[in-house]
Design a binder for these strands. Structure first.
Lengths: 234, 234
DNA sequence: TGTACATCAGTGAACGCGCGTTCACTGATGTAC
DNA sequence: TGTACATCAGTGAACGCGCGTTCACTGATGTAC
């Protein structure tokens, strides 16, 4: 979007100044300091990963895309993998926020909310492909960053809370273990996202959208636990 | 393993001669012709992919591991991606054979056989990590090889036949669509394999083995379709 | 308000490396006669 | 059985490339006085 009227020309993303310190009033030429290179590098990494995958992403390319020399990124990240880890970490944060927002504390009812969570998961895999690929496919490049080890735990915790809400209507002695439920639902969601949910890649002829496929699968699964929608009387 | 007694020193793998044409009786030095470089390169690729992933695999490395010059592979593969595609294709063949064997035409009953198929899927993901990674994670490197586009269809067909066998006990008007069933079961299996089924990577604290988790999930799912094990009477 | 200076985020040139790929070549094989 | 030769799977040297990383440096910023 073009800058509004008299505003400063820097691009602001989520409150971060993305521009150059010498404000570009004169036109194309830039000053010596970038201003927020760290953010610009993360944005560049996201773009490059979306285009070529986490393995195809290079530190030099990110610098080029951000418009700085190849040495500049070393002021902000120890090495290539640290930038990748930063992207993964932010990805998990965005992911968590999306799922928590979709869950909306189970309103108006747990089943509707869980369906929203599933759709949010699929939407994330499709629309935030760079994050998704970095989080789940970058592999060994992130092994040395232990802060990412537990990164998926938050999503699992949310699914578990959802399972607890769903199960609440059952008498206590009939309640299935909610951790198992969360794992099953997570696995089916992740499987559908991985196999059928990407934009164009690995596309198969599906009889329905990934979203509907997931919703149907979860409904059948919950039915199998005695958690069917209308709870038919005996 | 050392060669047995007076046998020829070449390594034979599945009937292919893997050795060098000048038999290494004299010790370490080798002849000019390899004998079965194509097979040796595939084997080298598998080993390298298992160690470093499909992205970390290099043509030069494969040549080195096979003990030939970096130019030699070009006699057998047009480029790096063609070798990768060959690996993927063989992977799908091995995968199919493993699943078909596990299914064993549904003996002794479809549910037992489907459980075996799920375990075979997880075993493949764990034990044939190089194949699995190349098939499902190599991504765009294989885009130009259309023969791999339909590579997953055979596995899906098998799951669909399994679904048909399972559903046969239901009256016709209550039978769920078998394609949908196959997709759900595939997704849950693939999800569990991807999230929890690798050897060491991305290990989480699970309350049960991936195999048992999958079995339980499929049983709940089938229960939800009215396909519970003992089919409790009304 | 003005100036000296410490700080530090950038530069740009350079390095060593491994990669994919090519090229003219050469040695082994196996076939025709 | 022996020899000439076509075939072709290998060699090894070389190329251009992009990458990750380092280094001494320099220009902009902002603070102390």
């Amino acid at each position: 979007m073009p800058p509004t009227r008299g505003s400063v020309p820097e691009v602001h993303v989520k409150g971060f100044n993305m521009g150059w310190s010498r404000h570009g009033r004169g036109g194309g030429h830039r000053g010596y300091h970038h201003g927020n290179l760290r953010e610009a590098l993360v944005a560049a990494a996201l773009q490059l990963i979306a285009e070529r995958g986490p393995a195809g992403f290079s530190f030099v390319d990110a610098a080029r895309l951000a418009g700085v020399s190849p040495a500049a990124p070393y002021r902000h990240f120890r090495d290539r993998d640290e930038l990748l880890a930063e992207v993964a970490q932010r990805g998990f944060a965005v992911f968590d926020a999306a799922l928590v927002g979709a869950w909306d504390e189970g309103r108006p009812d747990p089943l509707t909310a869980l369906d929203r969570v599933g759709r949010a998961y699929l939407a994330f895999a499709r629309q935030q492909r760079a994050y998704y690929a970095t989080m789940f496919e970058a592999g060994s490049a992130l092994d040395r960053h232990p802060e990412l080890r537990l990164a998926g735990e938050s999503a699992l915790g949310l699914l578990r809370r959802a399972a607890e809400a769903l199960v609440a209507k059952l008498p206590k002695e009939q309640r299935p273990p909610t951790l198992m439920m969360a794992l099953h639902i997570w696995a089916m969601t992740h499987g559908i996202a991985s196999l059928f949910g990407r934009g164009d890649q690995a596309r198969r002829a599906l009889p329905m959208s990934p979203e509907d496929l997931l919703e149907a699968g979860v409904l059948v699964y919950l039915q199998g636990l005695g958690l069917g929608r209308p709870a038919p009387g005996p």
